[in-house]
Simulated assay, not measured.
Amino acid sequence: MKQQDVLRHVTTPLSNPAYAPVVPRFTNREYLNIVYRTDADALRAVVPEPLEIDEPLVRFEVMKMGDVSGYGPYTESGQAIPVSFEGERGEYLHAMYLDNFPATASGREISAYPKTIGSPRLFAENGALVGTLDYGSQRVATATMGYKHHRLDVAEAEAQITVPTFMLKTIPDYDGSPRVFELVRTEITDVVVKEAWTGPARLQLFQHVLAPLADLPVLEVVSASHILTDLTLAPVKPVFDYLKGARS
């Protein structure tokens, strides 16, 4: 394979790439969002500067991807933390667990999504919307919400899922020292909200050393939403370089 041909590839293995070179379009992406109040000290311990925390809130999410170009259907779960950066409000993605390797690999390599393996599920059962997350055979989260109890304003639903997102892009050098260490920003675009609901909700988190969601304990459930949408993820852009101590 000639050098110019090598450069056409974006990932390895060269003859069998881990993911397709496409910009994925999410069709029928279904959210279960539960915002809860947590311990302020625990939150400060995991949110990196220069991001700032206003209230000690966390959004637990389970997302069932109905269809995604390049990846197919899959399910994802994790925690996002409301933050601000230089006056702009957004969310810091703290942890993401999913059951699709191409989506995991591309999310980590091309962008900076903190994705790792997990077994999330989202389904309706006996009048409740149920979201679960297992790590191996162990349950680490169970969320329940009244199924379609009250309609949620479409504009409010869109505002919930389109806030700017901040993540850490970390790539080690060959000696183990940091080669890239950046705070990056992205956002959701081309959004079509098809359905949006709210209602009563509960959330349980269980201790696991390799899936430490419960390190941000649930003190009070603040709100919940159930949203069905189509959307596209914008490319990430660096906004702060930790190795330089300044904006990129």
Rank of each mutant, 00 (worst) to 15 (best):
T144R: 11
Y113E: 09
R202L: 10
F26A: 05
A45C: 07
Q3V: 12
E88F: 11
R179G: 09
V58R: 02
K169V: 01
G66I: 02
A159D: 15
P82Y: 08
L43F: 06
E125L: 12
L168F: 01
T162I: 06
G66Q: 05
H9F: 14
G245M: 02
L231N: 08
P24T: 03
R108A: 13
E55T: 13
P200Q: 12
V218I: 13
Y174W: 10
L98S: 05
F123V: 05
V209D: 14
I117R: 05
H226A: 06
G90C: 09
A18Y: 04
Y174L: 12
G66T: 04
D99I: 03
Q160S: 10
P82H: 07
A18N: 05
E156C: 10
K115M: 01
T132L: 10
N100K: 03
I34M: 03
V6E: 09
D190C: 07
E52N: 11
D215N: 15
D215R: 11
K148W: 07
L210M: 14
T198W: 00
D99M: 05
L122T: 00
G70H: 02
A42K: 10
L129S: 08
P200T: 08
M63T: 04
D54L: 14
Y92R: 04
S84M: 09
N16D: 14
G199F: 00
V46D: 04
A128K: 13
A40W: 11
A159S: 15
G87M: 12
D39S: 12
L122V: 03
T27S: 15
V163Q: 13
L122D: 01
L14Q: 09
D5K: 07
T165I: 09
D241G: 07
T11F: 05
T142F: 08
P164H: 04
V184Q: 01
H149F: 10
D241M: 02
F181Y: 11
I171G: 05
T144M: 07
Y174Q: 14
E61T: 11
P114L: 05
V22A: 11
T165F: 06
A18M: 12
H149I: 13
Y74N: 06
L122E: 02
A45D: 13
R59H: 04
Y174P: 02
R8F: 08
P82N: 08
A45G: 09
S223L: 09
S223F: 08
R185Y: 04
G107P: 01
V191A: 07
E156P: 05
M167Q: 11
T189V: 15
L243I: 02
V222C: 08
I161K: 00
G199R: 02
Y97A: 11
R185N: 07
R179Q: 12
R59W: 03
T12H: 15
I171K: 10
L228F: 08
A141Q: 03
R185F: 02
H226D: 09
F240K: 00
L14M: 11
A95I: 03
